[in-house]
């Protein structure tokens, strides 16, 4: 991590599944480069042997009884879908 941090903006926007305009790409490339430079601070500290913290307090998996519960009706669950038909979400063709 000694070289200047930089980001392949096309590669990462594809990972994030966000389409950007060329103007946004240019702007983000420079702004995020600055942010990554700022993050370099993290490399200064010795964290050898330190356990990572995912949550501030220890959390454990919670099990529920294996019984069915009342949930949303499909009508209610689909109410916000941009397109739906026959109690299902309609999407563009996925398989050629």
């Amino acid at each position: 991590m000694s070289e200047e941090p930089s980001m392949d903006i096309d590669y990462v926007t594809n990972l994030a599944r966000i389409e950007l305009t060329q103007e946004e790409k240019d702007k983000f490339q420079s702004q995020l480069g600055d942010v990554l430079k700022y993050f370099e601070k993290l490399q200064d500290l010795d964290v050898e042997g330190v356990e990572p913290t995912a949550h501030a307090f220890p959390r454990f998996n919670v099990w529920d009884e294996d019984v069915s519960k009342e949930g949303f009706s499909s009508e209610k669950a689909l109410k916000n879908a941009p397109k739906s038909r026959n109690e299902q979400v309609v999407v563009p063709k996925v398989v050629e």
Partner: peptide, 15 residues
């Protein structure tokens, strides 16, 4: 490792 994991370890030190 360089970003997320390192940040989580540093989070331990902050705590």
């Amino acid at each position: 490792d360089a970003y997320y994991l390192r940040a989580q370890k540093t989070r331990t030190l902050i705590r």
